[in-house]
């Protein structure tokens, strides 16, 4: 499990993440795993790995998948405390 301790400001593809509920800009982070319904011929269970951001002020959760292109990644973390 990956967990970034502390609180963060998040930029996604260069844009500041804000809470759609309270406009908060500080989030805590957890990596979460979501089970994918397997296809008929699939034996092994597949999981979707997502980065979950919880608003420090109101608790609203937003989730993103980490996408990387070469050395670049869509999610940039800036620790604030």
């Amino acid at each position: 499990m990956v967990r970034r301790r502390g609180n963060y400001e998040i930029r996604i593809v260069g844009k500041q993440l804000s809470c759609p509920h309270c406009d908060g800009a500080i989030f805590s982070h957890r990596e979460v795993y979501i089970d994918v319904v397997p296809f008929v011929d699939e034996e092994q269970k597949q999981q979707l790995t997502l980065q979950s951001f919880t608003c420090k002020d109101c608790g609203n959760i937003q989730q993103f998948q980490q996408l990387t292109k070469g050395m670049e990644t869509n999610i940039v973390y800036k620790q604030v405390d």
Binding site: I34, V36, Q51, Q65, L67, I75
Partner: peptide
């Protein structure tokens, strides 16, 4: 995707869709 739900019983799966934006990962 699916998740286990408490009601009406354990091991009852709730199937939904999780769509990932190809641009930002949202």
């Amino acid at each position: 995707t699916y998740r286990n739900v408490e009601k009406p019983g354990i091991d009852v799966f709730f199937v939904n869709y999780t769509a990932v934006c190809t641009d930002c990962g949202g």
